[in-house]
Design a protein around this nucleic acid. Structure first.
Lengths: 210, 210
DNA sequence: GATGAACATGAGTAGTACTCGCGTTATCTG
DNA sequence: CAGATAACGCGAGTACTACTCATGTTCATC
């Protein structure tokens, strides 16, 4: 896996096409799912010939990777806004905000339920590194969250008798669990089962409690 | 999705072929991953013509479903053995045993790292119900674990002021988290990162504490 | 030894991802 | 300006893939 994009458009028209392709891909994902997705249909929806799609993206994996990238930027931007407005004082409040933003995006952003930040689940080398050549997808997300949460988690150095892992790792684990529980919540209920969403917050608060 | 198997073999020779196909599939998964898997190559490895594969299995999804089924039976059998030997007194001990068995299988059973009990991650109708037509995969696993763990979890009825969900749901959530953390553990380290495995136990113990 | 069920087979069908050579348009350069 | 260079546009063609099905063979049972 190299990058999610083969050639970035620089001219006006092709930039619009680039975005149209991503939008068509996202819509289709909601309609036919990952396995039902075909490049041909994405191209048809986006009203571009198939060759053009392959000018921008190295293939289906790259297409999904680019979509995941866009989702992550979107998420980080919106969460940053919420954080500035709310100024959470502890990890619990941060967790709530992050989960609420995820839920909001899941309800409103097309295709988000399938790719979110790249965790389609197929654990091949190719698709794990959709977002980043070195880190796996959720790791890239964790990295971004880490910078947002810096102040609220404890320092790295710690009491050797404390069984808790270093906070970066704890965040990584928390993220993996949140991903799993929230996916379940939306599998059970298309709007996200409220009990499971609440339980996700409770579990994370308990685990990350400083 | 109907069932993972189209026609169960009854005669000797075809039963051997049936198992050979599953074995070949499992091996190949370890070598080329889910996206690299082809029916043709599975058939070649198993030394059966392609038509025979399709006599038994409705397709690739079914093949993986049958493998997941076999894995689950295997897991439940081995865990039952461990439970009888150890007679755990609380949920924590049970969690440890289950995780240790999962880790052991992940290290020794071909293909287990990719399909385990069916959670390949592609959340299409087709692959979610590999194991069961009604419940999703992990739900089927939770159901089996529930019968094994019956005595150790609290009763269903509970104090309305208690924020914890009913124990069946708690088990379901715990399973989802364990799946996520352990997959991470084996993504980081092919033998399963010991720190992450330990942390998985700690998180589950904390969450399921009665 | 006859009858039906289970089993065996692989060329053929339909559909996919992705390429590549060539034509067109935009942008730069002197 | 003109000419050169780069970005963009295109879709028939290639090389795969999953899966079928008609036809033949072996087995269990009476």
């Amino acid at each position: 896996m190299h990058t999610a994009v083969r050639r970035r458009p620089v001219q006006r028209r092709s930039l619009e096409r680039f975005e149209r392709i991503l939008d068509a891909c996202a819509e289709l994902l909601d309609e036919v799912g990952y396995t039902g997705l075909t490049t041909k249909e994405v191209a048809r929806r986006a009203q571009v010939p198939i060759g053009t799609l392959y000018q921008f993206f190295p293939g289906i994996e790259g297409l999904l990777g680019a979509l995941a990238e866009r989702n992550l930027e979107h998420f980080v931007a919106r969460l940053s806004g919420r954080l500035e407005a709310a100024q959470p004082a502890d990890v619990g409040a941060l967790v709530d905000l992050a989960i609420e933003e995820y839920v909001a995006m899941r309800r409103s952003v097309p295709g988000f339920g399938v790719v979110d930040f790249g965790a389609i689940g197929i654990e091949d080398e190719a698709s794990i590194h959709l977002l980043d050549a070195v880190l796996d997808n959720n790791n890239a997300v964790a990295e971004r969250l880490w910078t947002l949460a810096s102040g609220l988690l404890p320092e790295e150095g710690q009491d050797p008798a404390d069984p808790r892992p270093n906070p970066r790792l704890a965040l990584r684990i928390a993220l993996e669990c949140a991903d799993a529980i929230l996916r379940l919540a939306f599998r059970v209920d298309p709007d996200g089962d409220p009990v499971l969403i609440a339980e996700c917050k409770r579990l994370l608060r308990g685990y990350l409690r400083t």
